Simulated assay, not measured.
Amino acid sequence: MIFSRDLSILNAMEPIVSNLFEDNYVKTGALKCDCEKCQIDIILLTLNHVAPHYTSSQTGEAYIKALYQEPQLQSDILREITNAVKVIAERPNH
């Protein structure tokens, strides 16, 4: 199957995880190492442990983001971010 370049495929979890990570760890200075490589590794490790939610439209992205305004779902993602922060702090890739 060949995809048209007119349509984009987005994992809507990427901006959700990135924003929660930024707000709860980067801005607060809570990271042992705050280099860009460690930050990306934390986001990637987190994304590997949360279910992806793919969409090809802004409407779909908005719907998924609205779902993740629920405190329990945000808490679940924060738990995964915290686990990733611990792993990367113990074994940084640099």
Rank of each mutant, 00 (worst) to 15 (best):
41 D>Q: 06
61 E>I: 15
66 A>L: 00
92 P>R: 00
20 L>H: 06
30 A>H: 03
26 V>S: 11
84 A>T: 15
26 V>D: 09
92 P>D: 05
39 Q>D: 06
78 L>E: 08
36 E>M: 04
85 V>S: 03
71 P>C: 05
37 K>S: 07
89 A>V: 10
90 E>C: 12
67 L>S: 13
54 Y>F: 08
19 N>F: 02
90 E>W: 11
39 Q>H: 11
58 Q>R: 11
82 T>F: 15
81 I>N: 01
71 P>T: 12
24 N>V: 04
53 H>A: 04
24 N>T: 07
59 T>K: 14
14 E>L: 06
57 S>V: 14
41 D>Y: 08
84 A>P: 15
48 N>P: 06
79 R>A: 06
70 E>Q: 11
94 H>L: 07
54 Y>V: 12
23 D>M: 15
58 Q>P: 11
39 Q>G: 03
7 L>C: 02
71 P>L: 11
35 C>W: 05
38 C>S: 07
82 T>Q: 12
47 L>Y: 01
34 D>L: 07
65 K>L: 07
83 N>I: 05
41 D>E: 09
5 R>C: 04
9 I>D: 10
33 C>L: 09
52 P>R: 15
90 E>A: 12
32 K>S: 02
36 E>D: 09
23 D>V: 10
61 E>M: 08
44 L>D: 05
59 T>H: 11
8 S>L: 05
2 I>E: 03
61 E>S: 14
46 T>E: 10
87 V>N: 02
